[in-house]
Computed example of a mutant assay.
Amino acid sequence: MRTCFEETIAELRSNGVRLTPQRQLILRYLKETHHHPTAEQVHQEVSKALGGISLATVYNTLHTLTKLGVIRELAYGDGSSRYDGNDTEHAHLVCESCGAVMDVEAPHLEDILPATANEKSFSVHSYRLEFYGRCKECETSEKTASN
């Protein structure tokens, strides 16, 4: 049985995308992690396996993989971006205290598509749904600090 990473590699190869060792390493890391790392965090992790990789290479690869649609860039108002290797439709829980981003199953697009989009002949191809609050760890530490 092929993994999500292997399926993505096969799809990219069939479309003629050049897959350097750096691209493969970054893609594998993002497909196998459930975290939503920043470019700097990606660089830190992939440097363990490929010591000479530059931060510029990581940024360029993330940009390319995002453009190819195999990862998602999650840009936030603080100027930071996180990267998500899960390319299926899903929602996120975002902790406003520590910045953690977690995947959650989301309703199907048809279930949340506003009727006005259909009335306006607007064709929706994807969406981004996020819920903001505090993770369990931050909630617990805030309660402990206030006591």
Rank of each mutant, 00 (worst) to 15 (best):
K120Q: 08
A145K: 11
S54T: 14
Y59S: 13
R128Q: 11
P21L: 14
L129F: 05
E73Q: 15
H63V: 08
G52D: 02
L109I: 12
Y132F: 12
L93W: 13
P21K: 11
A49N: 06
R2D: 05
L19T: 04
T8W: 00
G69M: 02
P114Q: 11
S14N: 10
Y76E: 15
G133Y: 01
A117C: 13
N60V: 05
L74P: 01
A106P: 05
F5T: 00
D103P: 03
A49H: 10
P114D: 09
E6F: 01
R2Y: 01
S97G: 10
A75W: 04
T61I: 10
K120W: 06
E137I: 06
S97V: 14
I26R: 09
E40L: 09
V104M: 13
S141T: 14
N86L: 07
H34E: 13
D111H: 08
R13Y: 02
M102A: 15
E110N: 05
T3L: 04
T116K: 10
L109P: 05
S126P: 00
G133F: 02
E110G: 01
C95Y: 07
N147D: 10
R134Y: 13
L25K: 11
C98D: 01
H125V: 13
Q24R: 14
L30W: 06
Y83I: 06
V94N: 07
V46M: 00
R13V: 10
T140H: 11
A115Y: 09
H34A: 09
A56D: 13
K48P: 01
Y127M: 03
A100D: 13
E32G: 10
N118F: 04
V101A: 03
I9R: 03
I53T: 04
T66W: 07
N86V: 04
E89M: 05
N147F: 12
A49D: 08
E105K: 09
F131D: 11
N118Q: 13
I26Q: 09
G77A: 14
T116W: 12
L68D: 05
E73N: 07
L62P: 02
R28Y: 08
Y127W: 05
E32M: 12
K136P: 04
